[in-house]
Design a protein around this nucleic acid. Structure first.
Lengths: 339, 339
DNA sequence: TATAAACACGAAAACGTTTGCGCAACTTTA
DNA sequence: TAAAGTTGCGCAAACGTTTTCGTGTTTATA
């Protein structure tokens, strides 16, 4: 790569000082019009751009936001990043993305690298492993230094910082209500392991709905998927039993789509034999047959909110108390629940 | 945010010079064991981390790779980013993601911002608008400065730099061959406007296959989707005609899934009345019914390759001539073409 | 005991920028 | 014509590092 042109080189070229060049390029009236114009023309010709690193160092501000997510190949997370990026850009920030790959170690090291001065703040969704081991010291360290931090989706309540979450309880509640409305009696829940916060919150909404309708909770209808095991086989066990449920609420799109597939393979008709609802943020639900009724999560909005909270925090325009924004869901009713 | 601890502050604390502190923390034998240990303990206690900006400025190296893509909410692009991130990380690089949103202006400004010194190199997939207007001066400017640049997927042949592409011709060729093998006679192609390189390359593969099999090209079977118009209505015109094709090759997953949906709505059975193949990188094809036979594009691999080419270029371990890597596809045969 | 080597640390430059202040030289005012 | 003001530019510090080269003191060698 060719060496980039700097103030120093321009100064040498004209036999003036660096500060003269700097001021000339900023159209300072301290510099005579003649010198100003010659310097500007020269700089223009050589396509001079001030070096960001130098500016960031001097201003003690990078205008970069770091984002750490468990994985990027996941429609929900890409919509969130999209939201973050759009909002951040409007406000003059850039986005640096790192992946934890659901690993505690990578999360720690990502945080460590990004907080060496290269970002002004961090937006994070906690990795599965971290949630599993309940190991949050790396976050404590950040918060001790009052480092601007926003947690989203996979959060931890004990951490004192801004947060934005999906209304998981409400979404599941609405979904279960809908299933009850259309006459479902035995509603199975396909959820994650308990330590995944979103999973357990959705379970909460499911239970709340059933209780409200006077239905006793049948623990045997609650299935907790282990993401390290074979997904298909685990979901088979929900449907391929002597007395299968007449409805399924799945906490994500993949679980729901697999349930639909398996139910059809077993010769069940949907929604008559079994109704299915999934949480979604992707496109699968739209193209299955029948298309899946879904709790739609507005990832884009979530990203925008997270970015807004963070930038307010960075720029000290935020209230002192930490905020917790809740993004509400809506139920997109499709044919998998329409009788 | 609390001010971070620096060498200067540590030096003041101990009444020594900054260089002594720096050396002590690097375990230099120039510094006496006693001083070394006291300084290290102190730095440890206050969780000292060297400031990245200062290092980057001094070393004239950021170890950051910039990535500019048209959009991120697209399974293909997220898999590519995943590949880039994984490889870059192994090599000690971080990734900065920017979105052009298919806009020429944003692409230009992204490039401008990122080349102010904050990244060591750039991986780019060209925006639709840029391709449409054939406006490539911003790239010329980069290449004039020998700025490390890798183009992927949406490339431009005239630009002298490293590139990595999907074997679009080959993928479409294989797909069309497969359709002919299973007995299809009138194969429609649903593709993009000509200026989208991947679209026209896939058309090329389609045409090559048909010609090889002695089939004359029927231009009326080639449909070019305009992404600014309603997708559903445009695809309806492919199927809802007096003499519909007996097979469809679609250049992406969404086109294919919509074609499948419309065909079913029209009462056609798949694959008997009409066979369908799409290009894919996502999950939709797996969950439609019948599941879609697809040309699968290995986005992850593509990302890895792009990152490898770029880092080799940055670190001067690349051959002088620019490389053009071709990622081959494979045909995943599912029930939408199995008679 | 003079000389050489080893030891322990500091000064300063360099990366690229911005900006407050100082200081000549010139121009205006009384 | 002396005092005051204006114009046009340079100096130097600051942001936080690393690293080369000195330098003064102590220890070992002849």
């Amino acid at each position: 790569m060719k060496p980039r042109i700097t103030l120093k080189k321009i100064a040498k070229e004209f036999g003036v000082s660096i500060s003269t060049v700097s001021k000339a390029l900023k159209d300072s009236h301290e510099i005579s019009e003649e010198v100003r114009e010659r310097i500007q023309a020269f700089a223009d010709f050589y396509n001079y751009k001030p070096n960001s690193l130098a500016l960031q160092l001097r201003n003690q501000k990078t205008s970069v936001i770091g984002v750490i997510i468990p994985e990027i190949v996941h429609h929900f997370f890409s919509t969130v990043i999209d939201g973050i990026e759009q909002y951040a850009n409007e406000k003059g920030y850039n986005v640096m993305v790192c992946l934890s790959n659901e690993s505690y170690q990578k999360e720690v090291s990502n945080i460590s690298v990004l907080t060496r001065g290269s970002v002004d703040g961090l937006i994070i969704s906690i990795s599965r492993e971290t949630q599993e081991n309940e190991n949050y010291q790396h976050f404590d360290a950040l918060l001790n230094d009052d480092f601007p931090l926003v947690l989203f989706d996979r959060i931890h309540d004990k951490l004192q910082c801004d947060k934005v979450i999906i209304d998981d309880v409400g979404g599941a509640y609405k979904a279960a209500n809908h299933l009850i409305d259309i006459g479902s009696k035995r509603i199975a829940l396909i959820t994650t392991q308990d330590y995944v916060t979103v999973g357990s919150l959705r379970k909460e909404g499911y239970i709340k709905s059933l209780k409200n309708h006077g239905i006793v909770i049948d623990e045997s209808l609650i299935y907790k998927i282990d993401d390290n095991q074979n997904l298909y086989e685990q979901i088979e066990k929900v449907i391929n039993v002597q007395n299968p449920p007449d409805a399924i609420l799945a906490v994500n799109e993949i679980y729901a789509a697999n349930a639909l597939k398996i139910a059809k393979e077993r010769g069940l008709t949907i929604p008559d034999d079994i109704a299915i609802i999934g949480f979604t943020s992707g496109l699968i639900s739209e193209f299955t047959s029948p298309p899946l009724t879904s709790v739609v999560q507005h990832g884009y909005l979530m990203g925008k909110q997270a970015a807004e909270l963070l930038i307010n925090r960075i720029e000290n325009t935020a209230p002192k108390e930490f905020q917790k924004e809740v993004i509400s869901t809506n139920l997109k009713i499709r044919k998998s629940t329409k009788r």
